[in-house]
C-alpha cells in the first residue's frame, strides 16, 4: 500500500512537471511568426514585439552546458556555476558554523538559568526581528571587507533560531532525566553532555535546520548587495546582462542547493531523534 502510494505520488509529480513544462514551451512557440524574418529582425531578437521568458528547452540546454563544465574561471564576470555556488556555500557554512559555536553554548546557559533567560530575553527579542541585511552597512563599516561582511550577515541571521531552540530544548528537558543525573552524582559537565545535550539534541537540530534555511535565503540577497562572487551576484549579473535563461537556471540551482542543505540537516536530526 505504502509503496503503491509512493509510486503514484512520483507519477503525479512527473505528470505535473511534464504538463507545466509543456504548456510553458507551447506558449512560447505558438506565437512565433511563421513568416521569414529579415536579418535585422533576427538580430533584434526574433522580431518579438516584447521580450519573452525563455522556454524550458533553452534552459535545459544551458543547464547541460553549464553543468558539464561547472568550475571554469574565465575572469571576474565569467565563472562556472559550480564556483559561484561554492562561494555561497562556503560563506553560508562559515557564518552558520560560527553562529552555532556561539548560539549553542549561549542557548545552554539561557536554558539552564532562569536568571540569564530573563536577563538576555529583551536583547534577543529586539535583535531577532532585525532583517539581517540591515546589518550590512554597519558590518561593511566595521569589518571593511565585503567577504567577511556577508559572512557576518549569515552569522547574525543563523544565530537566533539556534539560540532560541537550544534554550527551549534545554529548559524543556524532563525533570526526571535531570533527577537521574542527580541521583547518579553526575558532575555538571557530565550532566550537560550525557543527559541534557542528548535530550535537547532533536530540538537543537531543528533550530539548526531552520537556521541553515534562512542563511541560504539571506546569502543570495547579501551577495547581490556586495557583489564580486557567489550565486546571488551571479543572478544579478545575468539580469544586468539580460540573460534570463541564466537567471532561471541559477534560480533552480539555488533551490536545489537549498534542498540539499535542508536534507543534510534533516538526516542529522534523524540520528539524534529518540522516541519517548
Amino acid at each position: 500500500m505504502l509503496q503503491s502510494i509512493n509510486a503514484r505520488a512520483v507519477l503525479v509529480s512527473l505528470v505535473l512537471l511534464v504538463v507545466t513544462l509543456g504548456l510553458w514551451q507551447l506558449s512560447h512557440t505558438s506565437s512565433e511568426a511563421d513568416t521569414e524574418m529579415t536579418e535585422y529582425e533576427r538580430l533584434m531578437g526574433g522580431a518579438e514585439p516584447q521580450a519573452k521568458v525563455p522556454p524550458p528547452s533553452e534552459i535545459i540546454g544551458l543547464a547541460a552546458k553549464e553543468l558539464s563544465n561547472p568550475f571554469y574561471d574565465a575572469g571576474p564576470n565569467d565563472k562556472g556555476i559550480g564556483i559561484q555556488l561554492g562561494y555561497s556555500i562556503y560563506r553560508v557554512l562559515t557564518g552558520f558554523g560560527l553562529a552555532a559555536l556561539v548560539a549553542i553554548p549561549l542557548g545552554f546557559l539561557i536554558g539552564m538559568s532562569p536568571l540569564m533567560y530573563k536577563a538576555l530575553n529583551p536583547f534577543i527579542q529586539i535583535l531577532k526581528p532585525i532583517s539581517p541585511l540591515a546589518w550590512m552597512p554597519l558590518a561593511l563599516f566595521i569589518i571593511k571587507d565585503s567577504e567577511a561582511s556577508s559572512i557576518f550577515v549569515i552569522f547574525i541571521c543563523s544565530i537566533w533560531p539556534m539560540l532560541i531552540n537550544t534554550a527551549f530544548g534545554v529548559a524543556g528537558v524532563r525533570k526526571d532525566w535531570v533527577n537521574v543525573a542527580r541521583t547518579h552524582e553526575l558532575t555538571p559537565m557530565n550532566t550537560a553532555f550525557q543527559v541534557i545535550l542528548p535530550a535537547a539534541a532533536p530540538t537543537i537540530l531543528t533550530g539548526m535546520r531552520i537556521s541553515i534555511g534562512i542563511a541560504w535565503l539571506v546569502i543570495v540577497a547579501a551577495e547581490m548587495l556586495v557583489g564580486g562572487t557567489g550565486i546571488g551576484y551571479y543572478v544579478w549579473n545575468e539580469w544586468n546582462n539580460l540573460d534570463l535563461t541564466s537567471v532561471i537556471f541559477s534560480i533552480l540551482m539555488i533551490g536545489l542547493v537549498g534542498m540539499l542543505l535542508d536534507m543534510a540537516l534533516a538526516t542529522a536530526t534523524r540520528f539524534v531523534q529518540y522516541q519517548e
Binding site: 532525566w177 533527577n179 541521583t183 547518579h184 552524582e185 539534541a201 539524534v272 529518540y274
Partner: peptide, 30 residues
C-alpha cells in the same frame, strides 16, 4: 543526592536515547 541511595521512579525515568543495557551501564559507570 548520592549513589548510596538508589531511586526507582514510578515513570521508570530511563534515558530514551539509550538502549536498556546502555541505561544500566550509565548507572554502573557513574
Amino acid at each position: 543526592p548520592s549513589l548510596e541511595r538508589g531511586v526507582v521512579f514510578q515513570n521508570y525515568s530511563l534515558l530514551p536515547w539509550r538502549s536498556a543495557l546502555s541505561n544500566v551501564e550509565f548507572g554502573v559507570r557513574a
